[in-house]
Design a binder for these strands. Sequence first.
DNA 1: GTCTATAAAGCGATAGAC
DNA 2: GTCTATCGCTTTATAGAC
Lengths: 205, 205
Amino acid sequence: MELTNTRLDRDARRELILDVAQEVFLEEGFANASMSSIAARLGGSKGTLYNYFKSKDDLFNAYVERRCLWQDEIFAFPLPGETPDQSLRRIGRAYLTRVLTDFNLRNFRLIVAEAERSPEIGRIFYDAGPRMGAERVGELLRGMAAAGHLELEDPLEAAHQFLGLVQNRYFKARLCNAIPELTEKQIEDEAAFAARTFLRAYGRR
Amino acid sequence: MELTNTRLDRDARRELILDVAQEVFLEEGFANASMSSIAARLGGSKGTLYNYFKSKDDLFNAYVERRCLWQDEIFAFPLPGETPDQSLRRIGRAYLTRVLTDFNLRNFRLIVAEAERSPEIGRIFYDAGPRMGAERVGELLRGMAAAGHLELEDPLEAAHQFLGLVQNRYFKARLCNAIPELTEKQIEDEAAFAARTFLRAYGRR
DNA sequence: GTCTATAAAGCGATAGAC
DNA sequence: GTCTATCGCTTTATAGAC
């Protein structure tokens, strides 16, 4: 009993540390985030921090594993009764909304900056994020083609193209902090525009 | 005479310092690059460095101005006798080649990492780079539409779409260091694929 | 396990000799 | 203008009291 309680407390504390570390990493970047400031914001001490993570790199790797090694189901399959245009607009809107999230933008900046020195981190993120997203959309498109709504040879390539249509105008711009946050309407319009272009190219005539 | 020589020498040395600083910034990132290592690689001393740039931020701003405040003519207008497909493939290939350059990828990582704390730097880069590129392509498309080769309402939006088709599959992946360098053929194929999709959507039937 | 205190190293920036 | 030497500060990481 004692043992179980201690285990739970330890795990809970570890999670708490990771929550705080995440905040600091996203705000300051890896190089600028200091173990001291993480400990301070945690309310604890550096000694405790080093008790849970043996180095700053170790802490960062734990962050990457927790934040990049999952991808939930925003790419739901076509809903019953949806037209192809409706499906694509729904997926496009969901994708763009997610990709322009404050967390996603900051995380992307953080990961990409570190990808130079530790390529493994970039690869972990890419495989679990963008690559998996494109594959999900590829499956969706394959299904739509099988149902006779689209004419395409390479669903994965088409998925990359669709996601490119959806995000190209705003993703880089937001990443660079060059434009303000998008409105719901802008996102909806962009997704609709992408769906229209995609269907003109791939829709059954 | 004396004065002119000194001017030239000083400017030349300044350029040399910026060359070295660029190397270190691109390799280490801004936070990890130290004035000491820049001075060491330069073969000079920190005293000299601070004689030319009053702070590390000052040096970085000079780098940004030099590397981001120009954009040469890779988006040439359609060559005489080119078909729309040939124009688009040529532009797409040139754009993709340029965007996947080692320098461009490293510079993008560097700038984007700093865009969090100094949005001005991100904006400068975006306006002189991606935004200007999209506008150039927009003009190209407007010309092609005026010549009766395309049917489109919003050339700038279409330009963003075309560039999205061209780069979405590989830019993020290369940025994350998740895939190896592309071959000439891959670049050519991707540009051809983008041109085909774009023309299916916007080409005159 | 958690704290305080501190070690060892590196940083940006400066002073002063030449 | 360029160098050496160093200041003052912050960093990661550790040692030892409790």
